[in-house]
Write a protein that binds this DNA or RNA. Structure first.
Length: 418
RNA sequence: CGGAGAGUAGUGUAACGGCCAACAUUCCCGCUUUGGGAGCGGGCGACUCCGGGUUCGAAUCCCGGCUCUCCGACCA
């Protein structure tokens, strides 16, 4: 895409009411717009990143049998009354509204209830199980205090998968698969090295749930990490008994701040029993379906990536989620430079690469460099009088800072082989 | 929900209770310029968050509201 046609602009300064690094950089670079506290819109560059993250998540969910659907945000009060989760004294972060006729509605903060009810229409025999529906959808939570930029909103995107299994065994085996899939997702977006499976409180149906915690100073959680065993314990369950359960010793654990980028829960039969979601087994006996839920916040993940992969000049996107693969900068408008730049733009695109082409007439060289660093595309290619005369182009890696001159062929190889 | 702070052009800042609310940047026009946010000239843009009050006079002081941020509690 030609940058002269991109409607968003970069800014030198972030709004003063933003403190979180992720929001400052994403706003300055034109990825997001803050509508109000805890409510952010995604602009074209931001949406490109979000879509890449979502697609990585989809790939891994589909790989373990997930089937994508899309549930409603508007929620029927009566469904939530079945599990006693409608009342504000039980769930205090509901957004509620009313129909014209006065009926109360809620804006979904999660989807166990409506989905369990929906699945009653599709599950009646052991032959119908297991089932793994998931969605990537907006959730609404009336948080008392929004903070941490896009990492903690009142309206945010969430991938939520729910597992419906015949029994504990089947559930546990899927639960382990989901754990593996989550590991792949976080590795794919570049956070593998600093993300730990973390034991956290399990609610009423299992001793522990598992969170995926990414170590980061901007995190809101405190975890105790065993680097050797690649696991961690959330502070909320950190006590002698837990350590004994997990076979961990205090000495091997290190306290860290972390961002919860995902979590997986065993739900047991709490929801299936509330909705009478059961199936008939091979012997003609009825059994309640065993459930689990598995969440990831793509927006929060994007925020975490920015928190971790950035420097004083801007964002440094991992290639897998970068809005574009290559940022092509044209310095000056001589006909030689113009034809060199236009030529590489076409070549890169023909090679299947996503290219942001800074063809802006008015912007100075310095401005283009500064914008390029801020936006953080992994590869920067410069076409200028210098490169046109040399018959080569300059290639720079945003992460390593490494610069080299290369002709078109070498350029394509270098980028493809990285 | 407890505590603290802040609201002035799109953005970042300034202005003793007293001249036309200033500066930078963004934006527009012209010229010049193209390897690290370039230069010169001209121009647009603010009922100083809202509502009251004190005062000869309020961006400035007082009261109420709204919004934002930070710390804490809570949470994907």
């Amino acid at each position: 895409m030609r940058q002269s046609e991109l409607f968003t602009k970069t800014r030198k300064e972030a709004p003063k009411d933003e403190v979180a690094k992720n929001a400052k950089l994403l706003i300055r670079a034109g990825f997001v717009h803050k509508e109000m506290a805890g409510v952010y819109s995604y602009l074209p560059l931001g949406l490109r990143v979000l879509k890449k993250i979502n697609n990585i998540i989809r790939r891994e969910m589909d790989a373990i049998g997930g089937q994508e659907l899309f549930l409603t945000a508007l929620q029927d009060k009566s469904v939530w009354e079945k599990t006693n989760r409608w009342d504000d004294s039980v769930v205090d972060n509901w957004f509620k509204t009313k129909l014209k006729n006065g009926s109360e509605l809620g804006l979904g903060f999660t989807h166990e209830e409506p989905l369990t009810k929906l699945m009653k229409e599709h599950i009646s025999s052991f032959r119908d199980l297991p089932a793994y529906p998931y969605q990537i959808q907006t959730k609404f939570r009336n948080e008392i205090r929004a903070k941490s930029g896009i990492m903690r909103g009142r309206e945010f995107l969430m991938k939520d998968l729910y597992s419906f299994s015949k029994d504990e065994n089947e559930h546990n085996s899927f639960y382990e698969k989901a754990k593996g899939a989550y590991g792949k997702i976080f590795a794919s977006v570049g956070l593998g090295d600093m993300t730990y499976i973390t034991f956290a409180s399990g609610g009423s149906f299992s001793k522990y749930s598992h969170e995926f915690q990414t170590i980061c100073e901007a995190g809101e959680d405190i975890i105790f990490v065993s680097e050797e065993k690649k696991i961690a314990v959330n502070k909320e369950v950190y006590d002698d008994k837990t350590l004994e359960d997990l076979g961990l010793k205090k000495e091997e654990l290190k306290e860290e701040k972390a961002i919860e980028v995902g979590n997986i829960f065993s739900l047991g039969t709490r929801f299936s029993e509330a909705f009478n979601l059961d199936y008939t087994d091979e012997n003609g006996e009825k059994n309640p379906v065993v459930m689990g839920s598995y969440g990831i916040g793509p927006g929060r993940l994007m925020g975490a990536i920015v928190e971790i992969f950035s420097d004083e000049k801007g964002i440094v996107w991992p290639e897998s989620v970068a809005p574009f693969g290559v940022h092509l900068l044209r310095l000056g408008g001589d006909s030689e430079v113009m034809s060199q730049a236009d030529g590489v733009y076409a070549d890169l695109q023909n090679a299947g690469m996503e290219v942001l082409y800074d063809d802006r007439e008015g912007a100075s060289a310095g401005e283009k460099f500064a914008d390029s660093d801020l936006i953080g595309i992994p590869w920067r290619v410069v076409a200028s009088a210098k490169t046109a005369a040399a018959g080569k182009l300059e290639l720079k890696n945003r992460k390593t800072g490494e610069v080299k001159m290369a002709d078109k062929k070498e350029l394509l190889e270098e980028i493809a082989n990285y």
